[in-house]
Design a protein around this nucleic acid. Sequence first.
DNA 1: CGCCTAATTGAACCCGGTCAACCTTAGTGG
DNA 2: CCACTAAGGTTGACCGGGTTCAATTAGGCG
Lengths: 257, 257
Amino acid sequence: MSELGPLRLGDVSPSHSPTQLVRLASADFALERGLKTVRVARNKDILIAGNAYGAFHINHDGWLFRYKILHNGSRQVVDFVLPGEIFGVQACLFRHSLYSVATITDCSLSAVPIAMIDDLFQHSPKLSKVLFWSAVCEAAILGERLIDAARRTAYERISHLLLELFVRLKRVGATKDMSFRMPLTQELISDALGLTTVHVNRTLKALREDKLLAINEKTVAILDFEALSLLCDFERSYLGEDARALRAELAPYARNA
Amino acid sequence: MSELGPLRLGDVSPSHSPTQLVRLASADFALERGLKTVRVARNKDILIAGNAYGAFHINHDGWLFRYKILHNGSRQVVDFVLPGEIFGVQACLFRHSLYSVATITDCSLSAVPIAMIDDLFQHSPKLSKVLFWSAVCEAAILGERLIDAARRTAYERISHLLLELFVRLKRVGATKDMSFRMPLTQELISDALGLTTVHVNRTLKALREDKLLAINEKTVAILDFEALSLLCDFERSYLGEDARALRAELAPYARNA
DNA sequence: CGCCTAATTGAACCCGGTCAACCTTAGTGG
DNA sequence: CCACTAAGGTTGACCGGGTTCAATTAGGCG
């Protein structure tokens, strides 16, 4: 089990991220197949839009991002991949990957051959349910990011993104009190939220001046969670903390459940 | 089979919409359970955000939309539900539905008890795959709509939405040559794309004046598909026309495949 | 015919973009 | 150990796509 990364099955908190569950279930399912973990340096492309792939990936401990380059040259970051989450399922199912994925920090990754998936639905209803649940949650996160870009001001968008990252990281124990390490450049943030770096910079400054958060050396501290949540109507439910139909299957991976 | 709607299994075109496939596979799976089809008038709420539901729905022949009201009162339309597509899976899996769903036109709907899903993954690997594939595609569509809102101008956004609707409708045979009936108000369009009705109106006027499309009586005619596709870099691949891993399972529902 | 909803158009305004300069930090090589 | 460099962060001045507010016209339906 040690070769699967630093996080052990016993270390799982009760309300666990869906994609995290996939990781755990995959680990469970694939233990006897002996997946290898590889380290990848920061700033490397893992998947390239348009190519075909035969495996999806489990990200053990780094940050990555999914993105797409448009015809005018601008880059849209569709989502960030945090520690314990999976990525590249879409890239396997479509004939050509819709998005590229690149590392932000150093990462350790495991590749899970998609060939598994086809008979996986035959032999592991548990994992197939979890994969399904993960896809549904990913859609929910994208829906929320759509609302970000379409309906919220820059001030609200940035608040919302930072709260989301905080909650997602908290679930995997990657926060300390009300702060967390965020290896994102302002350029990545702007590309994710449909803003320019200049405006992200100004807005972060405003958020700091308003005493809503503090940023030092890539560490973000949430100073007023309440106020931030209100101003961008953040409700964590969309992050998929309460599965219902699949509860029976998810339970084995949650402590005290 | 007649009670399941106008579309028969034999009528399916080779490249079929994923959600459409769910509908067909569901029909297949649930035939012996005798689902009832009900007619619903236009402008009725079917699901309300925050409530709990125990069934997802198959939409046989109308238009609906998924939406959410923000704290400032504005409405974000997350997606449209076209004839032959399903909706409300999320509403079942989350403890509380994230979105509301309402009819735009009169619709005939069938409810599929979610109770099925739990053992469905046990007994129908085929349908579970198809459901999974549907969720992945929904995420892809949302990703594209995110790019709409974040990176494209109003002119490009509207072009992109109309092209997407055209392609999705063409697959279920709801187009005639290069035109289709679109029962959307300008308000719905603006709420979907993060614009105001005023600006949607002005932009549609510009698109008409540029001879890219024509609109008469709720009927949209694509006058220059090429030019429209180019200006908003529309590529239909994200609509999920080419499944790979699941091909074996999807094939039975496609003619000539 | 009258009511209500949707479409249309005009004018003023503003959030965020664009362009451009400067500063700060981390990494590199001599 | 420091000089050089490149990438990221910060700030100012100006501009423009899209919003806001408001008024008018056209359609759908009892």
